[in-house]
Structure formats: C-alpha cells, structure tokens
C-alpha cells in the first residue's frame, strides 16, 4: 500500500504545475486511505502516519475543489502551491511508522471519527486559505480575498462542527465535554483566531493586508494546534 502514498506525494510535489497530475495524485491518495481503512476495518485516523496522510489528501482535495472558483481556474501558482504543500505532508507521513493496532475502545465511536475527519477538512481549508492569502499579498487581486473569506468560513464551519462532535464524544467518553489540556486550549485558540479573521472582514477592504497576513498566520496556528501540541507539549489529547 505504501507505494500508493508515495505516488500521491510524488504526483502532488512534482506534478504540482498540472492540475491533472494533481488529480491523479489525489486519486492515488484516496485509494491509499481507502485500502488502509479496508485493511484496518475503520477509518485510518489514529497515529501520526495516518493522520498526516489524511491531512495531505484533504489538502489536495480541498485545493482542487477551491481551484474550481473562477479567479483560480487559470492560476498556475495556486495549483503549484497546493501540490507542493500536499506533497510535503504526504512525504512527511511516510517518515512515520505505519501502525496497524486495533482501535482502543475509547476511540471506537462515530463521534470520534466525525470529530477528526471534520477537523482535518478544516485544517486543509485553513491551509488553502493561507495559500490564497499569500497569493493576494503577491498580486493584490481583490477576488482572492473573497476566496480567502470563503475558505476561512468553510474551514471555521467544519472546525466548529468538529468541536461539537468532539464535545459529544468527550461527554460520553470522559464525562465532560471539555478538558483543560493544551490540545483543547489550542483548539479554542484556533477557533477564536478564525472568528477574528472572519469578523475582520466586516472592516472592509482597507484591512485586507492584515486579513491576508492573518490568513497566513492562521495556518501556522493550525500546524501548531495539530502537530506542535502533539510533538512539543504534554497533552493526553493528541495522536
């Protein structure tokens, strides 16, 4: 199965200039996740390898979906950036060992799967938003800020739904919908951060520069929430 993930990473990274190669890479990535899920008998969402692979495939999928919007249809830079980003994370997933352990009973619930899947869709959209923000900073085309707003809003919506699912899961699993762990704190920080980004939009075009920089910074906060907390901080709530 690993060659499929390698194909995904390679097609995304080296074929980033071409949307069809990116689409082929995405097909390989989805096939990898599907086969891995089939072999495990569940969604592959536990451990660094599986979650980073899921994140990378989500990035490519959200990137291709965002590319359908009019201002990005002919933007080769966007295609390249999405492909490189997805390829890097696909490659990173390959570094971590593949663990095929049975699902701990505490994670064996639909609420956990919903929580994680929705969170990764949100992370991916925040990543796409960062690319679009960087693009706006380079070319200053206002239509890009509309797309940045849409990706932030859609990502924030997925993330909010993920938090709701996580709260329900936590209530049944731990007896509380909220635990004071670094992961949960950073999850709240990320949610509040994007609430800020969305509200900043109401200030109008004069604030686009700050909005764009926050769009880029948002992905740094996203990566810290996802990877930084798990790798650098002690938290019972990590991969």
């Amino acid at each position: 199965m690993q060659p499929l993930l390698l194909t995904f990473a390679a097609f995304c990274f080296f074929g980033a200039f071409n949307r069809w190669l990116l689409a082929l890479g995405l097909a390989a990535g989805i096939s990898y996740l599907g086969l891995r899920g089939w072999s495990l008998g569940r969604l592959p969402l536990v451990g660094p390898h599986d979650t980073i692979a899921f994140f990378a495939v989500s990035l490519a999928a959200m990137g291709l979906a965002t590319r359908l919007s009019r201002p990005l249809r002919s933007a080769a830079w966007f295609n390249a950036a999405v492909g490189i980003m997805a390829g890097i994370f696909g490659g990173l997933a390959l570094i971590f060992p593949v663990r095929s352990m049975p699902m701990p009973a505490i994670l064996d619930t639909l609420w956990f799967e919903l929580h994680v899947v929705l969170a990764f869709f949100a992370y991916a959209l925040f990543g796409i938003g960062a690319i679009v923000s960087a693009g706006w900073l380079a070319v200053r085309d206002r239509s890009l800020m509309d797309i940045q707003f849409k990706t932030a809003l859609a990502g924030w919506s997925f993330f909010s739904a993920s938090m709701v699912a996580g709260g329900i899961w936590g209530y049944y699993a731990w007896g509380t919908y909220w635990l004071w762990t670094p992961k949960e704190l950073w999850t709240s920080i990320l949610w509040l951060f994007y609430a800020l980004v969305l509200h900043l939009r109401l200030k109008g075009a004069k604030w686009d520069v700050l909005s764009a920089w926050l769009g880029v910074l948002g992905f740094v906060v996203t990566l810290f929430t996802y990877l930084g907390v798990s790798l650098l901080m002690k938290s019972s709530h990590s991969f």
């Binding site: 004071w180 704190l185 950073w186 920080i189 509040l192 951060f193 800020l196 509200h199």
Partner: peptide, 18 residues
C-alpha cells in the same frame, strides 16, 4: 476584535504551563 486577540494570547501563554 481586540478581545478575541487577547483571549488567544492569554490562553496560548497559559497552555505552556499546563
């Protein structure tokens, strides 16, 4: 907006001691 930013900063600072 300022309150949102401040909550993020304070929670972030607190998370490192948790």
């Amino acid at each position: 907006l300022v309150l949102l930013a401040l909550v993020c900063i304070v929670m972030g600072a607190g998370s490192f001691g948790l």
